[in-house]
Amino acid sequence: MEPIQLHQVKKAFNQGRPNEFWAIRGVDLTIQPHRATVLKGPSGSGKTTLLSMIGCLSRPTSGRITRGEQLLSGLPERFMTEIRRRTFGFIFQQFNLIKGLSVLENVMLPAYPLGPDHAQLSRSALELLHQFGLGTKAESRVEWLSGGEAQRTAICRALINDPEILIADEPTANLDSRLSREFMAIVDGLKQTGKTILLTSHDPVVFDSPVVDRVVEMSDGQIMDPSCC
């Protein structure tokens, strides 16, 4: 598996308008595979923006993001989606589960565009749910879940397409410290299976965790200690 490399990545919002804002101001970074990396920093430091560009959710205004020989930034939408679907699994701060659907349906959703065999897909989804202690909740609606259960559902959803890289944005922001520690234990388990983990957080439970291999500190859209990267 190749590392992800960022070269002078910049991102502006409302470019050319009076309210133009540069959220990322020239970041060079290498993310090593099979490691857990945390982007740490206060709100507005650019962690989420950087994470979304690495995860092919948005494109940089300038600079390049590559994975080995493959250019991730600047690809047409269709290819970006394809890479996003197969390479990355996302766990969002608000979990972003779709209300009204069951836990099982939510977990299966990312696989729908690939058109896999239904029996096989539900089997994989149920296996994941059992693995994360949600086997009995498969048919429950997601709005009935506790915070920890919702997050584990989000993790199962992120893993359904078996991605190489797992991206989590402020994963413990809505969890108490016990659940936060549980989450880090899950991250540890995933790392053991060879996944690359990329997190953003300003929670000490996350960045002080022994599971984390590297902490990249950010401020005002830049990396505070570029020599570390």
Partner: peptide
């Protein structure tokens, strides 16, 4: 707003615009 949010989620988890 709920529908827009859902579209955003679907795209983020790997659905194409055409899907």
């Amino acid at each position: 707003a709920e529908e827009r949010r859902e579209i955003g989620i679907l795209k983020a988890i790997g659905w194409e615009t055409s899907d």
